[in-house]
Simulated assay, not measured.
Amino acid sequence: MKDNSLYTDEQLFALIATGDEAAFERLFYRYLPKLQLVIRKIVKQEAVVNDIIHDIFLNIWLKREELPEISSPASWIYRVMYNRSLTWVERQQLHKRKQQQLQAVTTTNDAEEAVFFAETSRLVREAIRKMPPQTQRIYLLSRESGLRIPEIAGNLGLSPNTVKNTLVRAGKLIRDHLRDHGIVLPLLLFTFY
């Protein structure tokens, strides 16, 4: 094969069907600039253009035995190019929609969780305010000051068992208060060590 323009697309298809790699290369270079231009306009992403072209020519090579049956090679190549390009665009749009939906769900979930957390925190503070003073003091020393049962007992002059029982009672008071307002949390969240 001498000059790229000496062969028609039909002749190149016939030669490619026999496994002629030089004919395949000529066809590739004949269509490369045209395909790049059109694909670039469709997908609008330079990085994808060569991937689609690679896919088109891989398809041609893998289906080379069928090439002689194609009456209009140029139309066939452009149809494959449009199909591949539009499929890529549709997949990107679908991916983008799914990302937006996921982001919307995540944003909604985050907002719902923030509202739930704020309401739960408000109800916990409300429950603490309703506790008897000694129970409230022990609870706050445990939760806000981070003191352990023996330290609280030493600071208040109480037995560790009294502090432990008071903390368990405080946890139940909070849990009951939350439950009365429609929030059910496991007692484990209010267990103190």
Rank of each mutant, 00 (worst) to 15 (best):
residue 149 I to L: 00
residue 142 S to V: 04
residue 111 A to R: 06
residue 88 W to T: 12
residue 100 Q to K: 11
residue 150 P to F: 02
residue 81 M to C: 00
residue 123 L to A: 05
residue 136 Q to W: 08
residue 124 V to F: 08
residue 124 V to R: 14
residue 121 S to Y: 10
residue 137 R to Q: 12
residue 146 G to E: 04
residue 147 L to T: 00
residue 121 S to M: 09
residue 149 I to A: 01
residue 128 I to F: 09
residue 129 R to E: 13
residue 147 L to D: 00
residue 127 A to G: 04
residue 84 R to H: 14
residue 115 V to F: 09
residue 92 Q to L: 06
residue 149 I to H: 03
residue 93 Q to I: 06
residue 79 R to H: 08
residue 78 Y to N: 03
residue 136 Q to G: 04
residue 140 L to E: 10
residue 119 E to C: 08
residue 105 V to C: 01
residue 129 R to L: 11
residue 142 S to K: 10
residue 112 E to C: 07
residue 125 R to L: 14
residue 150 P to A: 00
residue 119 E to S: 11
residue 98 K to F: 04
residue 99 Q to R: 11
residue 147 L to N: 01
residue 106 T to C: 11
residue 82 Y to I: 14
residue 146 G to K: 00
residue 93 Q to P: 01
residue 100 Q to L: 01
residue 142 S to H: 07
residue 84 R to D: 08
residue 142 S to I: 04
residue 102 L to W: 08
residue 107 T to L: 13
residue 145 S to N: 15
residue 101 Q to W: 00
residue 129 R to S: 10
residue 142 S to Y: 04
residue 111 A to T: 05
residue 110 D to T: 03
residue 147 L to K: 00
residue 115 V to E: 05
residue 108 T to D: 14
residue 88 W to Y: 15
residue 138 I to N: 02
residue 97 R to P: 00
residue 81 M to A: 00
residue 86 L to K: 13
residue 111 A to K: 13
residue 82 Y to K: 13
residue 143 R to G: 11
residue 114 A to E: 01
residue 110 D to S: 05
residue 145 S to G: 12
residue 96 K to L: 12
residue 138 I to Y: 00
residue 99 Q to G: 09
residue 118 A to T: 06
residue 117 F to W: 07
residue 132 P to Y: 10
residue 120 T to P: 07
residue 90 E to S: 13
residue 92 Q to V: 09
residue 105 V to R: 02
residue 152 I to E: 01
residue 140 L to S: 14
residue 121 S to K: 11
residue 149 I to P: 02
residue 123 L to W: 06
residue 105 V to D: 03
residue 102 L to V: 06
residue 117 F to S: 05
residue 151 E to R: 01
residue 141 L to V: 06
residue 129 R to W: 11
residue 138 I to Q: 02
residue 135 T to K: 12
residue 100 Q to Y: 04
